[in-house]
């Protein structure tokens, strides 16, 4: 995995786990690889993995079972809320940037619509 040098690694690992869950590569109730294995796979320090996992545990996304390991939560509502949160975060960033360019919300919708059509055409070619 390639990391961005300027963003805390633990934060990037959290984003990676979110992504794996949203994509369904990690399913509800599924066991995560052992911490050391994750450290070797992602080439980061064990402490960094631990920090990421402990924050995910606080958020309730990951459940730690003593002696058994770490599991994705079975709470599907929480996982759906996670997806919504991640998508909202992306839009919020975009919205602020557009607002900074003095684009009105109505224009944003139009720009987005046009852009999506444009992308669709590119993919059809």
């Amino acid at each position: 995995m390639k990391f961005n040098d300027k963003v805390p690694i633990y934060y990037q690992i959290k984003q990676y786990v979110y992504q794996e869950i949203i994509l369904g590569h990690l399913k509800a109730g599924q066991k995560l690889p052992a911490i050391r294995q994750l450290a070797v796979t992602l080439t980061v320090n064990v402490n960094t993995i631990q920090r990421a996992l402990s924050e995910l545990t606080t958020e309730g996304i990951i459940i730690t079972q003593r002696g058994k390991g770490n599991f994705v939560t079975n709470d599907t509502q929480l996982l759906q809320a996670l997806k919504k949160r991640i998508v909202t975060e992306q839009f919020s960033e975009l919205y602020d940037k557009m607002l900074a360019l003095k684009i009105t919300p109505a224009e944003m919708v139009q720009y987005l619509k046009n852009y999506i059509d444009q992308r669709k055409e590119v993919q059809h070619d």
Binding site: D5, K6, V7, P8, I9, Y10, Y11, T48, R51
Partner: peptide, 15 residues
């Protein structure tokens, strides 16, 4: 701390 450098200063360790 390595992640403090990235978080607080927004810099890579090298910078």
């Amino acid at each position: 701390q390595a992640d403090t450098i990235r978080e607080k200063y927004g810099e890579s360790i090298e910078d």
